[in-house]
Simulated assay, not measured.
Amino acid sequence: MRLPALFSVPGDALAGAAASGARPGARTLLAIGSSLCLYEAGMALNDWADRDVDAVERPHRPLPSGRIRPSAALTAACALTAAGLALAARAGRPALTVAAPLAATVWAYDLGLKHTPAGPVAMGTARGLDLLLGAAATTGHTGRALPSAALLGTHTVAVTTVSRHEARGGSPLAPLAALATTALLTRLVAHRPAGSATGRRPAAAHGLMGPGPARHHPGHPSVAALLTTACAAAYAATTARPYVHAALNPSPPLTQRAVGAGIRATIPLQAALTARARGTAGALVIAALAPLGAKFAKKVSVT
């Protein structure tokens, strides 16, 4: 179930809440719980669906090695999907309205779309829907969070495209395209901050992240703007070198390293999206997850 990748999940809901103009609350926590369950359901289902391929390409994985029974993996996927939908239902009907197609996308990807040209788009759609789940649970609306969902989904499409070659290696075009996508997203996030020039955001009740930010003096960068720039730079720095190495030598080890970097880079991207929406405290919480994910990635493969 790849614990290190799990740290890239909570930021989706927090970024969605910030993009919708609200502070995280109890329903946001339910959305995070739902996201974690659906993400891990996809992990278990992925290994169940790929068990025959993994027996040839990656016999050390849990199912082909015999450490985990296929029936246990499928049962875990079903149970986690049910738990994810139940948590979304507790967060309200709008959240369940987003969680249901999210779960369907996860299952469709693992069972059929993964090895088709639509695979990366399906994965990007799932990540975008996960961000919208946080917005729907927090405010009941998703419209204002659509731009952030599109940016996060685009990053996921790029990483997934690279991952299609991680077992056998392949063309340098995928990591080069991912590198260009990262550069574009970094520019869009850092130079097109959400909200007004004065840093004001819609009024909302106090939530888990405390009161909203005070106005900053016109002409001076706000804390949110500085944090956005820092997180965007961290996002670009996390992926740049691995993508370049994979482009110069698209071997399986370097391609897998690039995919792992792309997954880890999801966290600073989420933090940047949250900060640009004036969710400074939420961005700091998300950023704090990055070193934890990196620590566990030394013990368990992210891919």
Rank of each mutant, 00 (worst) to 15 (best):
L227E: 15
P94Q: 10
A283D: 07
A126M: 06
A22W: 13
L45M: 09
S65A: 09
T161F: 02
P253F: 07
G84D: 04
A31G: 10
T81L: 11
L14P: 02
A76K: 02
V106M: 07
A91H: 06
L29I: 06
D50S: 12
L45Y: 05
P211N: 11
T116C: 06
A89I: 03
V162W: 00
G212P: 06
Y235E: 01
C37Q: 08
A31S: 11
G140E: 02
A258F: 11
L273K: 01
S251A: 14
G119K: 05
Q270S: 09
L151W: 02
A194N: 05
A13W: 01
A135P: 12
A103R: 00
L176Q: 15
L14V: 14
T280C: 13
P4Y: 12
A287F: 08
A26K: 04
V162P: 00
D52S: 08
C231A: 15
L173P: 02
A15M: 03
G124K: 00
P252E: 12
P117M: 08
A281W: 10
A240I: 11
R144Y: 04
T156P: 00
A281E: 11
A272I: 08
T228M: 00
R187F: 11
L188N: 10
A258I: 11
A15C: 05
G16T: 00
Y243P: 01
A149G: 03
A237Q: 12
T228W: 00
W48T: 09
V285E: 11
A17P: 03
Q270T: 07
L269E: 04
M43N: 10
L184V: 15
C78F: 14
A275D: 07
W107S: 02
L248E: 10
G293F: 05
Y235P: 00
A91T: 05
L152C: 02
T280R: 15
T228S: 02
D52G: 04
P268S: 09
R200A: 14
A290L: 15
V302E: 14
P4N: 13
I267R: 02
S251Q: 10
G124Q: 01
H60Y: 07
S251L: 08
M209Y: 10
